[in-house]
């Protein structure tokens, strides 16, 4: 597959993926742009692979998890954790939209690698093996990252339901 064709087919999906793992559409845009520029220069090799998309997704993920974006990631986390505190009281708890926004805010404050694993599983529908490939770690690590993320989200979910129960 040629580079231009790849971009035409996958750019939107890459942007969605990057936005989901970064929780920042501008950072996602920067990362995707930079990665595609780099990928283009190695396209002879990447394009010949069985799964170019998986490889480019790995580049995007690595870029985000690399030290360069640590500061940006922390700033977003702080902003989102503020948001997370306010969401439950802002809307009718019965409203599905509010439920979803509350979950979104909780996902945004997960550690970056856990969130990446979560997005790969629940958004990109990747297997453990594929996630391990993208994150560059063992499958057992993938499982532990996912289970920790789910544990955190579940704990929040329980706490929130309890709080809302008292208030209602």
């Amino acid at each position: 597959m040629g580079f231009d064709q790849f971009v035409a087919d996958r750019l939107d999906r890459l942007l969605r993926y990057a936005t989901a793992i970064t929780c920042d559409k501008h950072l996602a845009q920067d990362i995707v742009q930079n990665v595609l520029m780099r990928a283009q220069h190695k396209w002879e090799r990447i394009g010949a692979m069985d799964a170019p998309y998986l490889y480019v997704k790995r580049m995007v993920t690595n870029d985000y998890l690399s030290w360069r974006h640590r500061k940006a990631a922390r700033e977003i986390s702080v902003e989102r954790s503020e948001l997370a505190k306010h969401v439950p009281s802002m809307a009718d708890p019965a409203d599905a939209h509010a439920e979803r926004e509350a979950m979104r805010a909780r996902i945004a404050v997960l550690p970056r690698k856990q969130r990446a694993a979560l997005v790969l599983r629940f958004y990109e529908d990747c297997s453990d093996a594929e996630i391990a490939q993208v994150l560059g770690c063992a499958e057992s690590t993938v499982r532990s990252q996912l289970s920790r993320a789910l544990q955190t989200l579940r704990a929040h979910e329980l706490a929130r339901s309890a709080t809302l129960g008292v208030h209602s």
Binding site: L11, R16, E99, R100, E101, M103, R104, L118, F122, Y123
Partner: peptide, 27 residues
């Protein structure tokens, strides 16, 4: 809860910038 996670991530992903902006920038 898994469905809620799916919906939340999809909502986050939906926020992405317009791919045409990125195409123009790449160009």
């Amino acid at each position: 809860m898994n469905d809620l996670i799916r919906q939340a991530i999809a909502a986050e992903a939906e926020e992405r910038v317009d791919s045409r902006t990125v195409l123009a920038e790449l160009h």
